[in-house]
C-alpha cells in the first residue's frame, strides 16, 4: 500500500507550498525588512544596519507596550484560567449539573462574537456620561469606583483587559469542563467516603487531574496576550497618550501611520523573540511538548 511515492508528494504540495510562501517566507522577509528604513509608498529603501533594533531599547513606548502585554498575560491567567477553573468546577458539581447547559451556553456566547462588536459596544458602555457601567456602579452602591475608564491612562489598559476577560472566560471554562468530564466519578465518590467533598475534593482531585489542561489554557492565554491587537486598536488605539499601546498596535502604528516600516519590522522581530521564548518555556514545562490537544 501507499508506495507510489513520487506521486504521493503531490498530496503535500498544496499545503506545504502555502505554508512555505505565506507563513515562513514572510517571517524571513520581516527580518530582512528590519534592516532598512522604508515606508509603504516610497520606492526609497535605505540600509541602516541595526539602527532599528537599537532604537527598540531607547524607545519608551516599547517599554509601555511590553508592560501592557505582560499585564494582559498575568491578569488573563488569573481571571481566565483561575476563574474559568472555578466556574467549571462549580458547574461540574452535582448540585449544579442540572444548570450546566444553560450557564455554559451563556458564558460562552461572547466568545463567538467578533471583537469589533464587543469593543465598540463596551466603548459606549464604559463612557462615563453616556455609558451603562458607571450608572450600574452607582446603582449597586459602588459609585465611588466610577471612573472615566477609557479616558485615563491609569485605567484604560485595565478596562480593555477587563473586556477581554469578559469575552474569554467562558471559553477557558469550557476547556476545563471537558477536562473534568474525563475524571472518573468514582474518584470523587471514594474521596467522599474519606470525608473530602466540595472544596476539599476540588483541591485534592480536580486540580491535580486537570493539570494538563491548566497548562494548555495558560499557554493559550499568555501567547494570546502578547499577540493582542484588535482589543486595543478598536477601543483606544493605544491612548490616552501612549498608555494602552501593545507590541502589535505599536507595530501597526509605526508601520502604517508614521511611515517607519523598517522599525515596525524590528518590533515584529522583537515579538517573534518574545513568543519564541514563551514557546520554549512552554515546551520545557510540558516536558515533551505534547500537552496540546486533549482530543
Amino acid at each position: 500500500m501507499y508506495k507510489s511515492q513520487k506521486r504521493a508528494l503531490l498530496y503535500a504540495v498544496p499545503g506545504m507550498a502555502l505554508v512555505l510562501i505565506f507563513v515562513y517566507y514572510p517571517l524571513i522577509l520581516t527580518f530582512y525588512n528590519a534592516f532598512y528604513r522604508w515606508n509603504a509608498f516610497s520606492p526609497v529603501r535605505t540600509f541602516i544596519g541595526f539602527e532599528n533594533f537599537q532604537r527598540l531599547f531607547s524607545d519608551p513606548v516599547i517599554g509601555i507596550a511590553l508592560t501592557n502585554n505582560t499585564l494582559y498575560a498575568v491578569i488573563s491567567v488569573i481571571f481566565q484560567c483561575g476563574l474559568g477553573l472555578v466556574l467549571a468546577a462549580v458547574l461540574e458539581n452535582k448540585m449544579f449539573s442540572k444548570f450546566q447547559g444553560f450557564f455554559r451556553t451563556i458564558y460562552f456566547m461572547p466568545v463567538v462574537v467578533s471583537f469589533a462588536v464587543i469593543g465598540i459596544l463596551w466603548q459606549l458602555a464604559l463612557h462615563p456620561a453616556s455609558g451603562i457601567v458607571n450608572p450600574f456602579l452607582h446603582l449597586i452602591g459602588l459609585g465611588a469606583f466610577a471612573q472615566d475608564w477609557l479616558g485615563q491612562s491609569t485605567t484604560a489598559i485595565y478596562s480593555i483587559i477587563f473586556v477581554s476577560q469578559w469575552q474569554n472566560i467562558g471559553y477557558i471554562m469550557l476547556l476545563f469542563l471537558v477536562a473534568m468530564q474525563k475524571i472518573p466519578t468514582d474518584y470523587y465518590e471514594a474521596a467522599a467516603i474519606d470525608g473530602a467533598t466540595g472544596i476539599k475534593s476540588f483541591f485534592h482531585i480536580t486540580i491535580p487531574l486537570v493539570k494538563e489542561m491548566t497548562l494548555v489554557t495558560v499557554v493559550i492565554t499568555v501567547i494570546g496576550a502578547y499577540r493582542v491587537f484588535d482589543e486595543v486598536f478598536i477601543m483606544t488605539e493605544g491612548g490616552p497618550g501612549m498608555s494602552s499601546q501593545t507590541l502589535v498596535t505599536y507595530m501597526y502604528r509605526t508601520g502604517f501611520r508614521t511611515d517607519e516600516m523598517g522599525y515596525a519590522s524590528a518590533i515584529a522581530v522583537l515579538m517573534f523573540v518574545v513568543l519564541l521564548i514563551l514557546t520554549l518555556i512552554q515546551i520545557r514545562v510540558a516536558g515533551t511538548g505534547r500537552s496540546k490537544g486533549e482530543g
Binding site: 507563513v23 515562513y24 525588512n33 499577540r227 508601520g255 515584529a268 515579538m271 519564541l276
Partner: peptide, 11 residues
C-alpha cells in the same frame, strides 16, 4: 507557533 501579526507587513 508563528503569529500572523508578526508577518503582517511582509505579507
Amino acid at each position: 507557533m508563528l503569529s500572523p501579526q508578526i508577518s503582517v507587513i511582509s505579507l
